[in-house]
């Protein structure tokens, strides 16, 4: 086997290994967290990054032909569609859970949220200044 083929094998294996590690992390995260909105963070990571790494590795294995282009199309499609799936699922959870306030904070409207964020920002700045002075 020539050197180019060895390099292709090594790099492809590397990408697939990274993808598998991401899948394992996703699976572990899904079982580790205790609420579905937290688990969705882990699942969304696997759906986009994990499968992209695996498919890029497989693209390197396959070389330059039509199959590679189709795999690239799969990656593009998944990068558009998976985050929307997560968004829709989290809306499902937020709409059908009666005691959502025990899991996360709910703001009534946009102005309250902005005020909270501005207050938190100001407090953070003053804390930093105190730390730097002392």
């Amino acid at each position: 086997m020539s050197a180019v083929e060895w390099i292709r094998l090594i790099i492809g294996c590397l990408f697939i290994l990274v993808g598998m590690v991401i899948f394992f992390t996703e699976l572990f995260g899904v079982f580790h967290f205790n609420y579905v909105l937290n688990r969705m963070h882990a699942a969304a990571m696997g759906d986009t990054l994990g499968i992209s790494a695996c498919l890029i590795g497989l693209m390197i294995f396959s070389g330059l032909n039509f199959t590679t282009l189709k795999m690239f199309l799969i990656i593009v499609f998944l990068w558009f569609a998976s985050p929307v799936s997560s968004h829709v699922l989290s809306r499902l959870e937020a709409a059908t859970n009666d005691n959502l306030s025990s899991h996360c904070e709910i703001y009534e409207d946009v102005e309250t949220l902005e005020r909270e964020l501005a207050a938190a920002g100001k407090d953070g700045d003053t804390e930093k200044k105190e730390a730097s002075v002392s």
Partner: peptide, 13 residues
């Protein structure tokens, strides 16, 4: 329900 849907999505991936 969202748990199950999310798991099925992962299986599809």
């Amino acid at each position: 329900v969202a748990d199950r849907l999310m798991a099925v999505n992962m299986m599809g991936t």
